[in-house]
Structure formats: structure tokens, C-alpha cells
Amino acid sequence: MSETKGTSLELEGIHAGYDGPDVLHGITLTVPQGQIVTVVGPNGHGKSTLLRTISGLTARRAGRIRLGGQDLTGLRPERIAALGLAHVPQGDLLFPEMTVYENLQMGAYLSRDPQQFAALLEDVYALLPRLKERHGQIASSLSGGERRMVGIGRGLMAGARVLMIDEPSLGLAPLVIEQIYEVIGTLREQGRTILLVEENPARVAHLSDVMHLLDDGRLTWSGAPAELLEREELLETYLGG
């Protein structure tokens, strides 16, 4: 991993949307090196669109995105990935007919160095031992929690400078959610740079360095996690308690 201190990912006035009107109305945020920044907010208010816009899947209509100082304007998703951004998308988007191992291999698609691959694989297997057990199994036959782990493992295999994770708790049983957030806790201890998206702030407050509240395509509040949890009126209005 390249170690440039300071800000890793910078967004400035991002507007984006699909066919119709804008979904995001001027998002500005930064993800500093070695921190976990979390965006929380109700479903359907643009959290996934934000990550998709950063990784180039959704067209940006205005604003700038910089990764480690490099401008991502107008780059295609595969170029952005090559510059060191890994995106664990919502719903995993695994390669369903590939084995766990092949999915991880695809995660490291851009690196042609077998030694680096072996090292990354060892890290991922250490972090997610279940994947080692299941390495030969076809992805579509895994349980929901296992699939999520493959998704995260595949993202880590890129050896990227910044990791974006979209709602890792989505659709999982409470016990499994706990396991997944334990994994993210380990990633935090390893000092990784992560942009995390989650619906429920209580689940991620202890993991986050900075939290943003995304409401109807705008960041309506930003600050330390502890502050957000104290602001009951905010939680009430936007997140229904």
C-alpha cells in the first residue's frame, strides 16, 4: 500500500443522477488517510449513488473528485480502479458462477504480480478464515453472510489505497451483521482508509472517525460520531430514531 499522508479522497460539489433529475446536490467531503469516514442516512437518499459516482459507475454532472491528489474527472470505472480505489458495491455483485477463489482472483485483476497476490490472499484469508474454507465453492451457493465476506475480501484483494463499502449490513441477520462489523473493526485497527455507507448510525458510530448525514442528496450534518448520537432530534427526523 502506498503511504501518502494526508487526504486520500476528496469530493467537491458533486452533482450526479441517473436519467431524471439530480440525486446528489453538491456533496463535499474528504476521507483522510487512515481514517474511516461514514455516510449515514435513510434509504433512497443517494448513499449508493454517492459511491457509484466516485467509482465512475454513475455519471457525475458537476464537481470534482480527487484520489490521492489525482483528478478523477472523466475517467472510466476501470481507470479509477487502477488508480487505487476499491468499491464493495451494494448487494455484493459477486461473479455468481465463479468460485470464491476466482472471485478473489478477480479482485486482484489489475495486479499481475504473483507475490503480491499471494501476500494479499494470505491477509484476506487471515481476516476472513471462512473464505479459505470455502475457496472452491461456487459463489451463488454461499449464504448471505459468506457472500458479503467474499465481497469485502474481493475488495481488499485490490490492495487499494481507499476502500468504499456500501451497506455491509444490508439484508443480513443481526448476528451476522455483528460478525461483519467485527471484520471492519479489524480493518480500522490495521489503519485502512475507508469510506463506509450505512443506514443505522448506532451500528457504525464506534468505528467511525467522522460521520456525515446524507438527506435527500445533501449532507445536512457532519461531525464526530459521539456528537451525532447526542443529537436526538437529528436521529429522530432523519432516521426515525
Binding site: L57, A81, L93, E97, M98, M106
Partner: peptide, 24 residues
């Protein structure tokens, strides 16, 4: 092969393949 994996990945999930850095 790596090329074959990219072909299969693209067939199975084009968006995910893009995110992995496959030039679709």
C-alpha cells in the same frame, strides 16, 4: 487465463467487472 476470467466476469456481472478494473 486472465483474459478468460475477465470475459467470464464481464458476462456474469458487467458492473462488478468494471469495479475490478476490467476494461469491459
Amino acid at each position: 487465463t486472465r483474459m478468460g476470467r475477465a470475459i467470464r466476469a464481464t458476462a456474469q456481472n458487467r458492473e462488478a467487472a468494471l469495479l475490478m478494473g476490467v476494461a469491459v
